[in-house]
Design a protein around this nucleic acid. Sequence first.
DNA 1: AATTCGACGCAGCAATCGACGCAACTCGTA
DNA 2: TACGAGTTGCGTCGATTGCTGCGTCGAATT
Lengths: 313, 313
Amino acid sequence: MADEPLSAGAVARRLGVAVTTLRTWHQRYGLGPSQHVPGHHRRYTPADLARLEVMRKLTAEGVSPAEAARWAKQSPAVSPALEQRLRAGVGRDGGGQTIPVGRAGPAARGLARAAMRLDSTAISGAISHALATDGVIATWESLLRPVLFGIGERHAATAGLIEVEHLMSRCVSEAFSAVASRGRPTGPARILLSCADEEQHTLPLEALAAALAEAGVAYRTLGARVPVAALIEAVNRTGPAAVAVWSHTRATADPGQLSALLAMPRRPLLVLAAGPGWRAETLPAGVVRPVDLAEAVSLALAVRDSLDQSTGD
Amino acid sequence: MADEPLSAGAVARRLGVAVTTLRTWHQRYGLGPSQHVPGHHRRYTPADLARLEVMRKLTAEGVSPAEAARWAKQSPAVSPALEQRLRAGVGRDGGGQTIPVGRAGPAARGLARAAMRLDSTAISGAISHALATDGVIATWESLLRPVLFGIGERHAATAGLIEVEHLMSRCVSEAFSAVASRGRPTGPARILLSCADEEQHTLPLEALAAALAEAGVAYRTLGARVPVAALIEAVNRTGPAAVAVWSHTRATADPGQLSALLAMPRRPLLVLAAGPGWRAETLPAGVVRPVDLAEAVSLALAVRDSLDQSTGD
DNA sequence: AATTCGACGCAGCAATCGACGCAACTCGTA
DNA sequence: TACGAGTTGCGTCGATTGCTGCGTCGAATT
């Protein structure tokens, strides 16, 4: 890109707003050229322009201007990446889930064996040990997900192992909730986690919750099978800054749920479509689709940081 | 922290109450922004917010709103000792958008209120406090069951509150699992807990599990929706002395499941038909039907003791 | 000469205000 | 057991407030 500073008129024309609006944004929200001598003309650097692009995009999506300005001001590094993603929608398509349990290492094998034995003590022990050693994200990606997937595959093939699956789920759930109850939240919960309508799989969402708790982020969880009306209602009542909706299969991935969120009077700043159910091309604009747990966590962190100022305490 | 004054909507969202409720609190109890010109918008300072937090905290514990407001108004912080006394609660208590808990006491009312606000922190806190103070059985019978029943009734009547139900279930489940993980079992697990086929309600079974853990009894849980074949298979593999099968509604209470257990080659000593789904006259002979949680626990204890005697292990 | 600056004002719109009422729950009483 | 009284959260309504984008004006900058 060109690195020559732009005049106010040029920037205004490029953004599609009036010149006076740029001035207003500067003096009302402090969103202007980083270097500006009062009385002299404003010269916008590319970085300043990027900030304004974020501002324009967010306001165009219905975010309150004051809040949009706060977001735009305090995200010099995050905003370009996020903006990129907002436009492109996705990175990779959800593939690569063909990992056999064997490839996931000896820990996974031991866990799977304990599950077969219905040995809940050993299962819980292995999981909590891994969580304490490697953290939530690594444990989920390289231990729990492979084992759960393996059990699910066997279950589908042999129509058996239902007890194993249940027991395993329960132990994982317990381990996550233990992590969640250990972390102390700072400030109010501005992030809402929910399953899609009819979606029954909760574990990935609990993994996200545990990861957030591990990072010290406060959140709310709604759980499985959340009807659209209930989700809207919950967002209305709690007014979160970000909402993550999990969908495991395409059958539960109705994009209308996300559109409904975006169309709300006070819509959340960030809407995350999480899970392999969602299809990139059917997602409404303005929805972010994280590819894995780590990305979902980092996005949530970005929202938390940018809102610390406005929500304060 | 940030001392930026908050609007009424922002405060309402943060506390989880409606905007109109904030106004009501202001004009009924005088609990509002310290500086407020009639006609102008309310601007809540951090100090005002702190007062409201006290209000919310006290009501979440079952204190009558009028009294809670009196305390919140004249105290920057509430000492734990006085808080205890307030919880005894006198004066009438009204309704609004609440959950009927009947005569279950102020603790149940507070829990129900926290659930309505989707305040998982308050919910978990209240539950674990009750568990630590009164034990699993008393907490289940006089706190959790009434509230869960109330939510369920409301949910059936209004077709709403699904989020509340899910969140509450999750918090209860977490609290029980915390109890279960604290208790150290003595000896091998000779008691198997399972849901009936197609039965989805797990919470009562988890209550039983927690109560057993509290009593130092080792057990195994299979979870929800256990097909008969899976149950038989699990009994075969683990050879328990007692099996409890939970059924919540008649639809899931197929006596054949129990007969199958009794007909096994090495049948369990005791088969418990737990839950309101079972009908006494259709149960096969040799099946015991406990009327409440306490009885189920004492039966399990009796089995454990008789085993200790005979095997001398 | 063409822009842009700071200051001021205005119109549209969303949020909020005060007032009122409803529904639901609890408790005391019959 | 049923019913009225007292409480309380919250929805609704018409009016008001305050935020927001932008036009205008005289002076300063480029």
